[in-house]
Amino acid sequence: MIFVNGLPFPTDSSQERGALVTLLEHPKLVSACNSFEAMQEVKVSASKEDALQGRWVYVFQREFATVNPAHIDFIGTDEATTCVGLVIRNQRNGMTSVAHMDSTNVVDIGLTQMLSLVADKNFDDDLDVHLIGGFEDVLPKQANGSTRSKTQEKGDGYSFALCTEIIETLHKRKEKLHIQTLFVLRHNTKRDSQGNAYPVFNGFLVKTSTGSVIPASFDRTTRCPDELVRRIRISASSEDPTWNGKLLETYDTQNDRFVIAPCSWTFWQVHVALTLQDLSDEEILLQCSTSPSAEGPEFVDNLRRQWDYLIKQPHWNLTFPTRHPRVFEWTADGSWKRCLFSPQDPWNEDGAQTSFQMT
C-alpha cells in the first residue's frame, strides 16, 4: 500500500488517470522533487578530497543490495538513464535496500527480494521509498498510464513503462510504503537548445543512519568490488534462466560481505562481443543504448572492456568455478579483498547448477 505525506494513497484516484501520473502531480512529491533538484551532486571518488567518510556499497544495473546501518554507512548507484534507482528503508531500524531496475520484467520478484530483509512479516513497519532516475526519454503520448503497454518499442520510450510498473506493483503490496521522492520522468529531465532530453541526475547516495538521499555520481574506483565481472552479469543474466525475473544478488547482508552470485554466458554472447567490438563508438551507442544521446562518457569504453573480457574468457566457469560466487570481504585498510569461497558457507543459489556444465 502506498502512502504519501502520511496518508494512504486512495485507489480510486488512480483508476482514471493512472497512479503514476497522479503521484507525479502530488504537491508533497513535487516539493520533494524541487528540493532534490536543488541539491549539489556529490562526486564519489577514491581521491582524498572526494572520498566518503565511511563504508559504502555500490549497486550496478539489475543488481540489488540490502544493508544494515550498523555495518554500512552509505549505499548508492548511478549510470541510470531510462533505468530507475529504487530505495526502500525501514523507518524503525534503518535497514536499507537499493535496486537499479532496468526492466519491467524484474519489478515483481525484485521488490520481493528487496523487501525480504527490510520489512517485517506482519507488515507493521513503515517503509520509506525513493524513486530516482528514468528521465523522460520521449514525450508521453497520453497522460493515462493504462494505455501504454509493458513491452515498449525502442522508439516509444522505456522510462514511463518501467516507472508505471514499479508504482503499480508497490500499490498492490501489503507493506506500508511511504513515497518520499519520485524524481523520475519530467522531474528528472532537462533539455538542450535543440530539445534533446537528458537526465538531471543519473545517481544517488543514501546515508543509512538517517535515510537522507542526495544526488551522486561515482567513478570507476568506487564502483567496486569486482566491477568488470558485475557489469558482464548485466547482459549475461538475460540468457541465464537462473535469473529470470530476478535482480542480481550482490551483497550478503547478514555476513557483511560482497557475494557476487554466479551467472553463466553462452558462446553466442561471445560471438556477439566479437561482432560489436568492430563497430565504431557511434554505432555502439546506437545499437547498445536505450538513450544514446544521454549516456555518460564512459559508456562505450565500459562496453568494450566487457567484450574484451568475454573474448579472453569465453568459458564462464573459469570466472565462477563450479558455479560458486565470488566473495569479497572488507579489510582494515579500507578496501574489499577477494577471499576463497567455502562450500560450507551459508549461501545457496535457488536453482543453481552445482556441478560443472558448459553452456
Rank of each mutant, 00 (worst) to 15 (best):
F9I: 06
Q15L: 15
A19Q: 01
L20R: 06
C33P: 09
F36K: 08
K43M: 05
K48R: 13
K48A: 15
G54M: 04
W56D: 08
V57H: 00
Y58A: 02
Y58M: 01
V67K: 12
N68V: 08
P69G: 13
C83H: 08
V87D: 00
R89Y: 15
T96P: 11
S97L: 01
D102R: 15
D102M: 14
D108Y: 07
G110K: 02
M114R: 07
N122T: 09
D124H: 12
V129P: 09
H130F: 13
G133C: 03
K141D: 07
Q142I: 06
T151P: 00
Q152R: 13
E153W: 12
G155F: 08
D156G: 07
Y158F: 13
S159W: 12
S159P: 10
F160H: 08
L162P: 08
T164E: 08
I167F: 04
E168V: 03
H171S: 11
Q180F: 02
T181M: 06
T181N: 13
L182T: 09
V184G: 14
H187G: 10
N188W: 00
N188I: 07
P199Q: 00
F201V: 12
G203Y: 04
G203S: 07
F204Y: 06
T208I: 12
T210R: 14
S212V: 14
S217V: 11
F218L: 01
R223V: 00
L228N: 11
L228F: 10
R233C: 06
I260K: 07
A261P: 02
F267N: 12
V272H: 14
L274R: 15
L274V: 03
L276A: 14
L276F: 15
E282T: 06
E282P: 01
S293N: 14
A294P: 13
G296L: 09
E298G: 02
F299G: 01
V300K: 02
V300M: 06
W316F: 12
P321T: 13
R323W: 01
R326I: 12
W330L: 12
W330R: 11
A332K: 13
D333T: 13
W336T: 12
L340H: 15
S342F: 01
S342E: 04
Q344P: 00
Q344F: 04
Q344A: 06
D345T: 05
P346F: 01
P346V: 03
A352D: 04
Q353P: 05
M358D: 03
